[in-house]
Design a protein around this nucleic acid. Sequence first.
RNA 1: GCGCGGUUAGCUCAGUGGUAGAGCACUUCAUUCACACUGAAGGGGUCGCAGGUUCAAACCCUGCACCGCGCACCA
Length: 1001
Amino acid sequence: MSEISKAYEPQSVEDKWYDFWLKQNCFTADPKSSKPAYSIVIPPPNVTGMLHMGHVLNNTIQDILSRKARMDGKEVLWLPGTDHAGIATQVQVEKALKKEERKTKYDLGREEFLKRVWAWKEKHGGIIINQLKKLGASCDWTRERFTMDPEYSRCVQKVFVELYKKGLIYRGKRMVNWCPVSQTALSDEEVEMKPQKGFMYHFKVQVAEIVGQASSLSQTSGRKDGDRLEACPTGAEIRLTDTWLTIATTRPETIPGDTAVAVNPKDPRYAHLIGKHIIRPLPIQLPPEKKLIPIIGDEHVDFEFGTGVLKVTPAHDKADFEIGQRHKLPVVDIMNANGTMNDLAGESLAGLDRFEARSVSVERLQELGVMIEEKPYENNVGFSQRADVPIEPRLSEQWFLKYPSVESSKACVEQADTSVGRASSRAANDQDGSPATSPDQKMRFHPDRWAKVYDHWLTNIQDWCISRQLWWGHQIPVWRRGPEWYEKQTKETRRASYEFLQQVSSDKSGDMTLKGWAANAEMEPDDFEFLEFQRVEVCLAPGKEDVARKLEDLGFTQDPDVLDTWFSSWLWPFATMGWPETIETLKKFYPTTDLVTGPDIIFFWVARMIMAGYEFMGEMPFKNVYFTGIIRDKQGRKMSKTLGNSPDPLELIAKYGADALRFGTMRSAPLGQDVLFDEKDVELGRNFCNKLWNACRFRQMQGGEVQGEIDPKLLSSDDKWILLKLDAAIREITEALNTYNFSTAVQALYRFFWSEYCDWYVEASKAILQSNDSARKANTLAVIDFVLSHTLRLFHPFLPFITEELWHGMGFSKEMPENQGGQTIMFAPWPKALDEDFKNFYGLSGQDKKFIETRNEFIVQGRNLRRNANIPANKKVKFIFRPAGQTSATDVEVLKLLLNAETVEVNPNFQPSKNDLAVRADLGELFLPLEGLIDVEAEKARLKKEIEKADTEISKVEQKLANPNFTEKVPAKVLEEHRQRLADWQNKLAHAKAALAALES
RNA sequence: GCGCGGUUAGCUCAGUGGUAGAGCACUUCAUUCACACUGAAGGGGUCGCAGGUUCAAACCCUGCACCGCGCACCA
């Protein structure tokens, strides 16, 4: 660092060191290492995503943890990678395709479209990885994984096969959350409830009776979905009554799909109508006998709500579907997959979007004269999280997973109310701050309140809809054949098919699982020969491509659906480590130590990973989960593209440097709270780096090599004070990191370095550095070197680039063994707090601390004198010091420097004249002779204020001490503190009064 | 409806029973001094409200208000 620039220029430093670290393989984890393991798996960003502030927060924390662990002597694996992000990526490519070629995915076909997605991934997939590198992320890039890597895909498939075999994965016709824009089913977690303003429509329907063969009406269960509803059997007659029912609904467009009207059987108003019918008003064109639907009784109906009469639309409402199941109602689906109405909705609605259909339905009801009122109404509607449109409950065939290992997953997380309190940290039973591990150790969430949220979710989970009607993703490894196949076969081909399937079913490896159904009943494999199945499916493990081909020859086709992206992400902690094919990495690094993620994916990802961990590894996937806050703008709004309030981290890095961005982000990210991001914080980070830079530059300008030995005999009080402050800072920062209190750690660093070291210590040390005493000078430099070399290490996890640059530039690297800081600060040992031996050897005691604190207070008062006398900061003045006791020449020199005095004359017998300003403290008295040009009134005012303050404090303390209840009950220590405080204030009062009297005399 | 979090200086937040704090912002002063990406000094708060426990409450308890979030949800 011979020619060190005046200001720190991160741009010239960051890439250099990142390349250096990569070339030296500093980030590469060695599973054969004898060091204790520390591991984190990255929450994989979307492969084609761009770095945003959430990533910055999240990955900075992981980098801090990783770098700290390396300095603690751990073998660190921070495993990076990306997620294929099914819907998001597919939508991106579809959009580009439309824009550039005006084509849809159907124009290309599945195979060609997937080629395009892969090409897109190749082109954009590296972007976010490079952005993470810019940030300084010390990931082991040799192990970068992607959720659609061949090995990873095999892992997903293997897991599917296992769960299928156990019967936990099954296909079923269910009501699912359908996104009409993405045209796929979604899991419950992907649905977001939003309040929506709309109307509650009240319309009336006429009750009808059937004369004749009414009993045959209940035989509707045999209908197939979509059959035209014909409630009135031929030959029977409909007789309209005088009774009308009023129905309340928010979705009149679904009337054509209504197959019953339900009332509560206990509702005295309507119970007697159960069994009668009504005539559905829509579709208008249909004759009344085709719109006759029954009035049923169901406990689900709340008679307080609406009119107490519920229209039942089994095809378009989850609750209605269940009612339909109970009463064997037909299910009439009146919509297409894209959310438009189909022919069953009637001529006037068919082809319309569901929301257009709503207003048209309202018009029709008005025309019919049955609309009674339209009340503005707000209700919660489920929205597709991705497409931001209301989801449509839809009956469809999907794959579901019954969650495995739920009980162990519930039991393994330390619950908030049973933990020992906030101090319980990973350091609780481990002195050096490493995570405690024992077989029965529980997983901890930080902050622990998330454990309750997790537990609640796990208690109420429903089966997970894992199939998606997309192309980009892991295709479901099941080959299926329907009953239609048989009709076209000869006896011989059936025989061949049977024989092959028998081979498959007798497979003992578990790689092939066969299931067959006939007449809607699952069959035992032995029965296959005798029955014609309606459906057969075969689930295949990886490596069975030959079987798949053969099955395809036999009329089977692979299920076209792909798996929910989270069905691959939930395996991330072990699939990335090579499971099940290689175990070396797993053995060393699984379970991982920490997981750092946002609470918004606690259900999507964290909970599911825990279940997968237990199910497939028999063990928790991580020991600690740190939940970051959500990054918001400074007004507290979520960051979003549309608001334009989401800064580009890369721009911030270019402007301020990566260290500055990291520092600023961490400083404002308290444990478990949302982070209000303000560019000012990054600016502060930049300023801080510059301060650090210049503090080192100052040391360099003093010349000389790194000073190793500190001579205890030559230490000044300031030296001892800063060593004690360093000790406190090491303790505070280490503890803060052990408890994941990153912002506390950053603030402690800031305070220690800027206020304590730069503002006080360096300024005071100039008294010696500017003297001619070369021995003491060298000793001071030794203290500075000691403090700086510790400081750089304390800073390294937060500010990796500048600390590396300075570590080498200052020559500290030369003082360390090659693999412990010699090569890079990354592996320099984390500073240890000063122990008793050290403190005894160097004579560090509380007395030194107290002395400097008092001295500094004295200096502040002295500066205050100048200020009150309106003496400009650049004007040097004479002070006279009347010491209360012994004083050294150095102390006086420091006073002179810090007061910016021309001289400080030491005169034990000084007699002030009446206009001299003075401050008095334990150290002695300081006089500022004024020689006329002063603002006596300002000083008087200040003293009066001080007297007032002292009086208030004194009376407060006196009052307490006068209370026998207080003096008798309070601990001795507190009592002593109060007495001391009283004495201090009385002392101050006396000083101030004397000064005032002097001015007034 | 149930649950969680929050309410402290103009702003953002620390502060788990014993003297109310930090950073930013603000006011004033200082540029050949390692650093103006700087230094020095200063002003600014009945700790959301009401009760209770205690010698002592920002802190513990109860209730309330407001803000935010999650879960559930009736058409």
